[in-house]
């Protein structure tokens, strides 16, 4: 069995300050971490690997200036990683990435399951898994809390409203994992040192593929156009209500009615 995990990075929020009034994000420390939902996808893949001996291949969720997320995946237990690079690829959006990743998965061959985070932490983007499933022509299950692969099927626990339901899909399939679904494991120390020093067997596990070898360059034009950045308006101050319980309830109801124009 082979599992593909798709991983992205996000600025470590402890190193940034968002100032809505100034309309700016101040970066004090430019440090990146794995997208939390993608990290859960990696953990889900590694748990299936623990149980079945499946091979795990890590791919990037977007064009990246370096291969750090893939090295993290290898240090944590992935068997192989492919860094995607190439001209005209930098601005790729989810639509382009889905095409590129579908071509990559096809080139890899033998993949039974693709796992990816359901939503990115910074931009709230949640299209990638669905677009990729569409591009591959595979079934998809989105928003998983738990994943297991049994008898040619993937069985997923996901939330629908206030209920948890079990969903099944035939393999091969695409599953998107929710952030916080699983407690991710730590990297292994020896693997970490070796992959970052580029020594030992693990160094061979990181490959670089040129996107131009996977898709024709004219398909790399993004659908998305970025025209600017805006901050949401500051929230209005609330109303403090005092008095007895009845008075406070009445005042709160009045305030709400006024707010909605009742």
């Amino acid at each position: 069995m082979q599992i593909v995990v798709i991983l992205g990075r996000v600025l470590d929020p402890s190193g940034i300050v968002v100032k809505g009034k100034a309309g700016r994000i101040f970066v004090n420390r430019e440090e990146y971490m794995l997208q939390p939902a993608d990290r859960c996808a990696l953990e889900a893949a590694l748990r299936i690997k623990d149980g079945t001996g499946a091979g795990v291949v890590a791919l990037p969720r977007s064009p990246l200036p370096d291969d750090d997320v893939l090295r993290q995946a290898l240090a944590t237990g992935a068997d192989r990683a492919v860094y995607l690079t190439g001209d005209g690829f930098k601005g790729a959006d989810a639509a382009v990435m889905a095409r590129v990743l579908a071509a990559t998965v096809e080139r890899l061959g033998g993949t039974d399951l693709v796992l990816v985070g359901a939503t990115t932490m910074d931009t709230g983007q949640s299209q990638l898994g669905s677009r990729l499933a569409e591009a591959l022509g595979w079934p998809q299950v989105i928003g998983a809390w738990q994943v297991e692969a049994v008898d040619g099927k993937v069985r997923v626990v996901r939330q629908e409203g206030s209920n948890y339901v079990t969903a099944e899909a035939d393999l091969p399939a695409v599953v998107t994992m929710l952030s916080g679904a699983l407690k991710p494991r730590y990297p292994n120390g020896v693997r970490l040192i070796n992959i970052y020093k580029d020594v030992g067997e693990i160094a061979e596990a990181l490959e670089r593929w040129d996107v131009a070898d996977l898709v024709s360059v004219d398909t790399l034009k993004p659908l998305l156009e970025r025209r600017g950045r805006d901050f949401p308006p500051e929230r209005e101050r609330g109303v403090r209500v005092n008095g007895t319980l009845e008075e406070m309830a009445q005042a709160a109801t009045d305030a709400l009615q006024q707010r909605i124009g009742g």
């Binding site: 440090e31 971490m33 750090d68 090295r71 993290q72 240090a75 730590y186 990297p187 120390g189 970490l192 040192i193 970052y196 020093k197």
Partner: peptide, 16 residues
């Protein structure tokens, strides 16, 4: 710091 030491610190800090 070298890349391996940056990655090591990230791992240790999260653990700690």
């Amino acid at each position: 710091f070298s890349p391996e030491h940056i990655a090591l610190r990230r791992m240790i800090r999260e653990f700690a």
